[in-house]
Structures are given as structure tokens and as C-alpha cells.
Design a protein around this nucleic acid. Structure first.
Length: 413
RNA sequence: GGGAGAAUUCCCGAGGGGCCAAAGGGGGCAGACUGUAAAUCUGUUGCAAAUUGCUUCGAUGGUUCGAAUCCAUCUUCUCCCA
């Protein structure tokens, strides 16, 4: 069987590892228990978590056992890595709720131990609140604290970003806690590897160091490439915020469009990192520039939508996109707003009200601007007059509003 | 504990009694060019019943015909000395 490490490496997922030869040997020779930590700061996973899920999925398929560590305890502090501001603290209830939502979404990617289709390597979920909350401060300092050099910690990249704005003692401790998590899992569950985004590198190696010091045994760490745009900006953010995996927060059609609109330079990379499309195929698909990359983008968007939502949703999103951007604007599956009957006054619904009601403009002033700048079309007719009204009988059969070049919305009564 | 300073719109950052809904940049949105890409150029970017009105410059009170701007108290942050 192919060594999973080689696969990850070939797909460009691996950024750094503590001991490449060791990791490769380990993953090729035994069933390894590994963990990835998730901060439970929101009630849905988003595209930023995508890679972690993909890697877990790859590893589980190869027979390894994932531990999902939910940061119920550490989220109470907040990882300062790469953040320029201190995070606000969260309550236990919020964290618990978020953890539950994560678990539900993750089940699309990996099999949990208690689900029927899991083999002997079903994923388990742990919450570091279970051991961190009861820590005795004195014991912790004497036992774990001694193993850390502040000088060394401050020299790491993780803290450099915070150097100018100041760093509270609480945040400084994040690294110790994450390292302790690894040690704890190593001891109790024989977890030998930790994975994480490349920004977690310092936290991960400090855990590996801690295990070496306390247990005298070797543990491994591996980080994967961060998904960034060509400019180095983290992917997964749009003007509306993160692209979520929860269909309630980011509808499948929007999710599809996010990938469909990705910049040319990222297509190949995203295919390699995020999909199961064989490498040889990727090269073939994306070989030439020019308009043909559009086919590749479509495939990327389709595959990812199918993975996160379902084949059915992906089909619908693809069909909707094709009909909207193609010649005919048959309304397939697109965001739709049902207007209340009383919205129609004599002569119809004013365009500006319509735009606001559909969420296409946050305010009427914004709607006015859109119209004045020629950004709004309804049923393929450009709206030029801000006082125009849409007749009730048109709304009854439904109208398609186009904002800019690629936002489509259907409004009906 | 003592002293000095800071807080402005989505972000950075000017503005130090009326000419301020507040310069400039970033970001966003729209238009042109394109390929549902990138780059570039142009417009725009508090809200509304829009030649006007209303809310907004950390919070609360005050001075004044008039306060982002002056005064008092408070909150938070930064720096210096212990």
C-alpha cells in the first residue's frame, strides 16, 4: 500500500515535519493515533478548517486513528498566534455548543468511533477542558512550567507578531497548555503525532519537546500548508466574512461560487490540496491557461461542494450557475426571497425596497448607489430609475435580480 | 505605587471650537476592459420621508449660540520610573 506520507507530500500538503524520515516510517509501519486541535470559537467550521479535515480524512482512510481535540479549555484563553489583538473570552456554554456543531459537520469527512461505518480506527473526540480545568497551578508550574524557557518562547514566530502590541501572561501560557495537551494524549491514548496548520508549528514542536523531556520518548509533529491566495492572504474570507461549511450560514450555491471564482493561480493548488482528483489529471486539466481554466474551476467547485454538502447539492449548484451565467436565465437553485403580500403597494414594489428586502443592499442608500451606477438588472433589463416599481404580477411569477456581474437573486411573492 | 500619553467611521490614520458625515490610504461595492480570473483605470463608500433632516469621533456629565475639538469624572490601552 502507498505510504500516506508520500501521498500527502506529493499533494503538497506537508509544510514542515519534525523528522521527515521518522514520520514516513511511522505512518508506513503501524496504525498511528494522531490528533488535530480545533479552537471552538464559532458554531461552524469554515474553509480555514478545510485542510485539517482533508488531512484527517486522508489519514483515516490510510488506517490511522484520528483524535479530534476540541479546545474547550484552551479556547477560554485564545491562541495568540498570528493575532494582533487579544481574543475575547468565551463562556463554557458557548464552547460546548460550538463543539457539538463541529462534530456534526466533521462527520461528513471522517467516521467517528461510535458510528456504524467506523472500523477499528474510528475518530474520537476529546475536550481539553476535561483535563485543563482541574489543573493545580503549583503542580503545573513545577511539573510542566520548568520545561519551558521564556527566552525561547519569545523568539518563536508565534509571539513575534504580538511583540509590539504586548502580550498578556495568560496568552503566553497558551503554548504550555497546547504542549500539555499533547503530553496528556500521548500518555492516555498513545497519541504519537500532532498535525496542524503551519502557523501551529511552534506550538507543535514545543509539545514534541515536552514529551521528550517528560517521557524520554519520541513524538512527531507535522504541519500542512496554509491555503492562501497568491498575495499570501488566508483563503476562505469574503466580504461577508468566512466561507462556512454550514449550509445555513453559507448556502451550497454560494459555497460553489466561492470556488468557481477563485483566482487562476490558485486552481491547481486547491485541486491538489483539497480534492481527491488524481495528480496526473490535475496537470492535464489545468495545463493550458486561457479560458480553459474555467472548466477546471468548475470541476473544483463541483468536487468540493459534493464533498462538503452532497452530490445532489453540487449538481444543483452547478446547474444553477450554468443557467444563470449561460444564455437562458432559467431559475434553478438560487437564493430566493419570499416577499410578504403587503409589500406590494399600488404600482408595485419600489426597487430600493426590493433590494433591501432581498439582502442585496444593506440600506436604501446603498441600493440607490447600485442603481445609479448601473449595477442592477431585473429580468435582464437594466434599472436606471431609482423610483421604479416592480409590478405585483411580475413578482407573482418571480423575478430575477442581478447585482453586479455575478450575484443573482430571485424574488417572488 | 508614581509620572507621561492615547482612544476618530469596516481597518490604518489626519483633524485641536463653526468652512466636519469628518483629509489620505487600505478594504468593500459598482462601472469599463475581460474568461464568473488576475492586473489596470473610473466612480462610490453613515442613515433616511434627500437642495433638507437625523445619528456618529471610548463612556457619562458640563461650558458655549455652536463641541470630534474645551472642562470634569470614569473605562480601556501604551510608554517611562519603582
Amino acid at each position: 500500500m502507498e505510504n500516506i506520507f508520500d501521498l500527502l507530500k506529493a499533494r503538497g500538503l506537508v509544510a514542515q515535519s519534525t523528522d521527515e524520515g521518522g514520520v514516513q516510517k511511522l505512518l508506513g509501519s503501524e496504525k498511528v493515533t494522531f490528533y488535530i486541535g480545533f479552537d471552538a470559537t464559532a458554531d461552524s467550521l469554515h474553509v480555514g478548517h478545510f485542510l485539517q479535515l482533508i488531512v484527517m480524512r486522508h489519514l483515516q482512510k490510510a488506517g490511522h486513528k484520528p483524535i479530534i481535540l476540541l479546545g474547550g479549555g484552551t479556547t477560554m484563553i485564545g491562541d495568540p498566534t498570528g493575532k494582533s489583538d487579544m481574543r475575547k473570552m468565551m463562556t463554557k456554554e458557548e464552547i460546548g455548543h460550538n463543539a457539538e456543531c463541529f462534530r456534526r459537520q466533521m462527520s461528513k469527512f471522517i467516521a467517528f468511533e461510535d458510528s456504524e461505518n467506523a472500523g477499528d480506527n474510528g475518530a474520537i473526540v476529546v475536550n481539553n477542558a476535561d483535563w485543563l480545568l482541574d489543573i493545580n497551578y503549583m503542580e503545573f508550574l513545577r511539573d510542566i512550567g520548568v520545561c519551558f524557557s521564556v527566552n525561547k518562547m519569545l523568539a518563536t514566530d508565534a509571539f513575534k507578531a504580538r511583540w509590539e502590541r504586548g502580550l498578556s501572561f495568560m496568552e503566553l501560557n497558551y503554548m504550555l497548555l497546547q504542549s500539555y495537551d499533547f503530553l496528556h494524549l500521548f500518555r492516555t491514548l498513545n497519541c504519537k503525532m500532532q498535525f496542524g496548520g503551519n502557523d501551529q508549528w511552534s506550538n507543535i514542536i514545543s509539545g514534541v519537546d515536552l514529551i521528550r523531556r517528560k517521557e524520554g520518548k519520541e513524538a512527531y509533529g507535522l504541519t500542512f500548508t496554509l491555503l492562501t491566495t497568491r498575495e499570501g492572504v488566508k483563503m476562505g474570507k469574503t466580504e461577508k466574512g468566512a466561507v462556512w461549511l454550514d449550509p445555513e450560514k453559507t448556502p451550497p450555491y454560494e459555497f460553489f461560487q466561492y470556488w468557481r471564482n477563485i483566482e487562476d493561480a490558485s486552481v491547481k493548488n486547491c485541486m491538489r490540496l483539497l480534492t481527491d482528483i488524481p495528480l496526473a489529471d490535475i496537470d492535464a486539466v489545468v495545463e493550458n491557461d486561457g479560458p480553459s481554466v474555467n472548466a477546471a474551476k468548475e470541476r473544483l467547485a463541483y468536487e468540493l461542494t459534493a464533498l462538503v454538502h452532497s452530490r445532489g447539492e453540487a449538481d444543483k449548484a452547478l446547474a444553477a450557475a450554468k443557467s444563470l451565467f449561460g444564455a437562458g436565465s432559467a431559475h434553478a437553485d438560487m437564493p430566493t426571497t419570499q416577499l410578504p403580500a403587503e409589500a406590494v403597494t399600488e404600482g408595485g414594489v419600489p426597487v430600493l425596497d426590493l433590494l433591501v428586502a432581498c439582502g442585496l443592499a444593506p440600506s436604501k442608500a446603498e441600493g440607490r448607489r447600485l442603481v445609479q451606477q448601473g449595477g442592477i438588472s431585473i429580468d435582464d433589463v437594466k434599472i436606471t430609475d431609482i423610483s421604479q416599481k416592480i409590478a405585483g404580477k411580475d413578482l407573482e411569477k418571480g423575478v430575477i435580480i442581478k447585482k453586479g456581474k455575478k450575484v443573482f437573486h430571485k424574488a417572488m411573492l
